[in-house]
Design a protein around this nucleic acid. Structure first.
Lengths: 185, 185
DNA sequence: GTCGTTGCAAAGCATTTGCAAGACT
DNA sequence: AGTCTTGCAAATGCTTTGCAACGAC
């Protein structure tokens, strides 16, 4: 657990900018690094609100997350749900994400060959690559299985009732602003 | 130019849902298909506002774009600027995007090998792939060249003046909410 | 004291929605 | 008449910001 170590790194990052490691910043930092899951700003805020300790406002959560991003202690990504998702960089090499439409879970994957092909694609167009964003959207193993079962049950029920066609169940993840793009597959 | 043809396809798509091809919907459709560039809802709205013809409200632009997305006449994507970017599907096979941080231009690229590796990555985790989102962020050929020149000039000026270090010029694209993710490279 | 900080509430932004007025069949 | 549509304005939801009160050196 080198969390203390990286906290110190954060502190010196702040010092370098004449900023201080206040108690709220430390709490935000610690809570953010206490999970290896991806989380949203709102989640982090509510976690902190549920804990004892100095009260932390939403504004401070956002402000601190901003600093953590600048210092590259965390990364944020848009998984197409209208809100950003954060993850810290501890013990995670570079990876891309698979986002489940069923349960919202985010898995990580990495393939060096894809990385190379990206470089190649960029080079081919004289494009100077700074970063990339790559995510696969679909259903995780568990949700895919559940859906197949449900589809089977629906089909059986239809045969039995010979009624109108049943509709697909909607994805569990609500997403007002669907920012997903790219064609099927 | 099979635009008329696809307009008819849009009309029957609408009819299938008991919706009508009104004059505003037709104008929105036509303007959207009149460009092969990527555009935002706001851009489309202002283009239409600048043209003679039936006044179209922002709400209707958004509503119609929604229908066009549902019918898969267009696609939307989030290029990390806090707003969605649209493009029609005419004459474009599947492709991914390279987004320039300098000028905002969006180029397209496609590599079948990457597509396959994605399938492989998904299969490896039992993930049922529905779609994907892949974009390369950086500087297009033109902007990359301009930056190199500017960097050279800065270096020369520094040597001459021997003053403090000059800062990188900020990216031209303003983006309040920076949704870009993924590590460098 | 002088800065950097914080919380609150208000502002911003892209997008969505409620609703009453309007159009088409 | 009965629907589907539209425009407007208000509402949303996430995130940012102005500002006055605070706190540390």
């Amino acid at each position: 657990m080198k969390q203390a170590e990286i906290l110190r790194a954060f502190e010196s990052f702040l010092r370098g900018r004449k900023l201080k490691l206040t108690s709220q910043r430390a709490r935000i930092f610690e809570r953010a690094f206490a999970t290896h899951e991806h989380f949203t700003a709102e989640q982090l805020y509510s976690w902190l609100s549920g804990e004892p300790g100095a009260r932390v406002s939403r504004a401070t959560v956002y402000r601190t997350l901003g600093m953590l991003l600048e210092g590259e202690f965390m990364k944020s990504m848009d998984v197409g749900r209208g809100e950003l998702v954060y993850e810290h960089v501890l013990g995670h090499g570079h990876h891309d994400h698979m986002v489940c439409l069923g349960c919202g879970r985010i898995e990580e994957f990495h393939d060096e060959r894809i990385e190379e092909l990206q470089l190649e694609a960029a080079a081919k167009k004289g494009f100077e690559l700074v970063k990339h964003d790559h995510r696969l959207i679909g259903y995780c193993k568990g949700c895919a299985g559940r859906r197949r079962k449900a589809a089977g049950a629906r089909a059986a029920a239809e045969k039995e009732a010979a009624g109108g066609p049943a509709k697909e169940p909607p994805a569990a993840i609500s997403s007002k602003r669907i920012a997903l793009s790219s064609p099927e597959n």
